[in-house]
C-alpha cells in the first residue's frame, strides 16, 4: 500500500512497542520545486529501517544520520536542505528546491 502518513506513524509506533529507538522526520516547509509536500514523513528506527520519505531520495541519508543523533539525545532538530546550504554538494536537492525537515524522537 502506497498510502500516506497512516502506515508511517503506525510503523513507528510498532517499532517503538517492539523496544526500538525511533525517530520521525516531517517536512515542515518547502520553497520552489521540492519533491515531497509539507507533512510528508519518514520514520527511522535504530537499525536504520525506514518507512516513508521526505524527498525524492536526495536527503534521506542525511536525515537518517541526524535521526540517529536525535534518538540518542532526545533533542528535536530542524534541518535545512537546499542549494544555498553549505552542504549543497553533498545533500542538496538536485531540483533546486529547498526544504525544512523537523526531526523528533518517538518517546
Amino acid at each position: 500500500m502506497i498510502n500516506p502518513a497512516e502506515d508511517i506513524l503506525e510503523q513507528a509506533a510498532r517499532w517503538r512497542t517492539g523496544g526500538k529507538q525511533v525517530a520521525v522526520a516531517t517536512v515542515v516547509s518547502t520553497w520552489g520545486s521540492s519533491p515531497r509536500p509539507v507533512g510528508s514523513q519518514l520514520a527511522v528506527d535504530e537499525d536504520r529501517r525506514m518507512v516513508g520519505s521526505v524527498s525524492g531520495g536526495c536527503i534521506e541519508g542525511a536525515v537518517v544520520h541526524e535521526a540517529l543523533q536525535v534518538m540518542q539525545d532526545g533533542k528535536p532538530r530542524l534541518l535545512d536542505f537546499g542549494v544555498t546550504n553549505e552542504q549543497a554538494w553533498e545533500v542538496g536537492l538536485a531540483c533546486g528546491g529547498k526544504v525544512q525537515v523537523f526531526v523528533e524522537r518517538v518517546d
Binding site: 506513524l9 513507528a12 509506533a13 517503538r16 524522537r105
Partner: peptide, 9 residues
Amino acid sequence: MQPAILKRL
C-alpha cells in the same frame, strides 16, 4: 513525541 500524543493521534 510523547506516547500519549502518538496514541491519541
